[in-house]
Design a protein around this nucleic acid. Structure first.
Lengths: 341, 341
DNA sequence: GTGAAAGCGCTAACAT
DNA sequence: ATGTTAGCGCTTTCAC
């Protein structure tokens, strides 16, 4: 009969107990433990010793409620299975942590209603700020964000007007750049293959940019295959097989919604004995490591994901310091001409 | 001269204002907004209307401090660039959210000191519980976890004795199973290729299991190549190139620290014209989608990552409900015999 | 440099 | 079914 590990044991010591142990008032203990300005050297050391002895862990709920800035930052992402957002989160977390801030996470799964609930929930923790890679946000969500009373950073796409600040790249320009690149390489037959982008605003914008760029040379997409479900390597593999059942290869360039999908297509080509790029040219998006490690490096667009995370965190923290921060920060993109086109 | 979006505007309405607007006392408003047990139907509706009209968002810091259970769960992961942990986090978040709980995230980068700071920081938010995929944790970290006063779930490996609960698989058994499989396929020449596992306790344990299993047939690793840095596709590609500079191919089976590394090796083989598995047999770990989408499906060990996240969340939540929960939950693993061995 | 008083916004406990 | 009182653990005044 063992004690429940989390029910047994002493209750956590409070600041009052630390203060008593150190023979000072609560407020002096408080000051000592937060940098110790306006505290005598000797007092500071006594308080620190007492805290250590008691294994004191401050209660930040109380601290924040009493007037401090929260050191939590709400982060709302549409997905984690897409490594792009894992990278962004990684960059965010790293940078926040350096300032002793921590992300509270919500994943919307590209569902606007879900996102709305999430934002409301996370805001109830009174975070110091909020970072969001929006799904197709509802009006209510936008209102909450606008009235949040804390800095809000929208990330990934800088095309829409920001509610407060935005950090990312022009998804439209990225799509257009890919069109120009393919046209420049002489391709006139272009198809699009994607996951279900109806709920993914950035993939949608990229596709529009692509079609825009093609239209400037009076080229239209020859075919479009869109499969339901989140993007993945297997999905790309399946989708390109479907495409090739519709249109013949040979000087055909296929743009994918992202690199995962394109890598799947590459695997299909290897398995089906199709020559890349002669029979089938492939272009992805994001510039993931895996695409670059293929025997034929994948043509793609590098999207500086970690930098977006870093910059978003920095923008947020700077604003909290009272500094002026640009409303829109464009991290740009870089077209990676690979061997698959 | 615009107003700072997060400084301007009214201060957020409090429960007291909602109560006043609805013409009831604070506590009645509180009860109404939390399910409305012991509240008259009419009262409930008035309070709800007032809250909506005022755009009321409850302050959970205050709520939790006053006596509620926190609905935050601390999550400490060693990495996010490894998709395994992104999957676990995804599973965790999904399940926590269904119970209106949210993860506060910390990433340790496999650094024990960093992990220690992280645990202390996260605990100061008085989370309802903590989930951790441990790095090589320090004694101090273990003490903090043991004395946290809330449920703690250690995930991924169930071999070490849990501080409180653990959910995962036996990494040692998984390594051993791979050894037996390769021996069963007739391989007698086996090499190991990994990222720097000195800080990755689970990869280390898997390698031990592998060597253990091989030793049972009196086979020893013929070579070991370990490259610094986190595991990745490009790193695997480079590492296997180094290996082949040391030992000749031909009936050689190579075990990788995980699938990313193995996929890199596959790409190397494709580029170098090596026949897989005749010249070079490849085995990974985790059973990632990408390995299974290769033209030759990768031999690997499926590790049920999302399930680990789900189960960890469920274990935590059940414990919070007061239910009895098994200290150790083994989700097992499944050897995937691919075409690369 | 230190302390006393007041209160952050909410909920448990005990009324009624 | 509703209200009153008392605090959660801390920090912000304002005093000395």
């Amino acid at each position: 009969m063992t004690t429940d590990p989390f029910h047994g044991g002493e209750p956590r010591p409070t600041l009052a107990e630390v203060a008593r142990a150190a023979g000072v008032s609560e407020i002096t203990a408080s000051r000592a433990l937060r940098g110790g300005v306006h505290v005598a050297r000797a007092t500071l050391e006594r308080v620190e010793a007492a805290a250590r002895a008691l294994n004191y862990v401050p209660n930040r709920l109380a601290g924040t409620l009493a007037g401090g800035q929260s050191r939590q930052v709400a982060v709302v992402l549409p997905s984690l299975s897409n490594s792009v957002f894992a990278d962004v989160l990684d960059g965010l977390e790293t940078h926040l942590e350096r300032a002793s801030h921590h992300p509270i996470l919500g994943v919307s799964n590209y569902d606007p209603q879900h996102e709305e609930r999430l934002v409301a929930d996370l805001l109830s923790w009174r975070p110091a700020g909020l970072v969001i890679a929006p799904a197709a946000s509802t009006e209510a969500t936008r209102r909450m964000l606008a009235g949040a009373g804390v800095p809000v950073v929208e990330i990934m796409d800088i095309d829409p007007a920001p509610i407060d600040m935005s950090v990312g790249l022009s998804q439209r320009a990225a799509g257009r750049a890919m069109a120009h690149y393919l046209l420049g390489r002489g391709y006139r037959r272009v198809a699009y293959v994607g996951h279900d982008i109806s709920t993914d605003p950035r993939a949608t914008t990229r596709k529009q940019g692509l079609e825009l760029g093609l239209a400037e040379a009076e080229v239209a997409l020859e075919a479009t295959v869109i499969l339901p479900g989140p993007s993945s390597v297997p999905l790309g593999r399946e989708a390109v097989a479907r495409l090739l059942a519709e249109v013949p290869p040979g000087g055909l360039a296929v743009c994918f919604s992202n690199d995962d999908m394109a890598v799947g297509a590459m695997f299909h080509a290897l398995g089906a004995g199709l020559a890349v790029p002669a029979d089938l040219a492939l272009a992805g998006f994001n510039g993931l490591a895996i695409g670059q490690a293929l025997p034929l490096p994948l043509t793609s667009v590098a999207s500086h994901r970690a930098e977006i995370g870093n910059l978003a965190a920095r923008a947020l923290l700077s604003r909290l310091e009272g500094d002026h921060v640009a409303r829109v920060q464009d991290v740009g993109f870089r077209l990676i001409p690979g061997a698959t086109t």
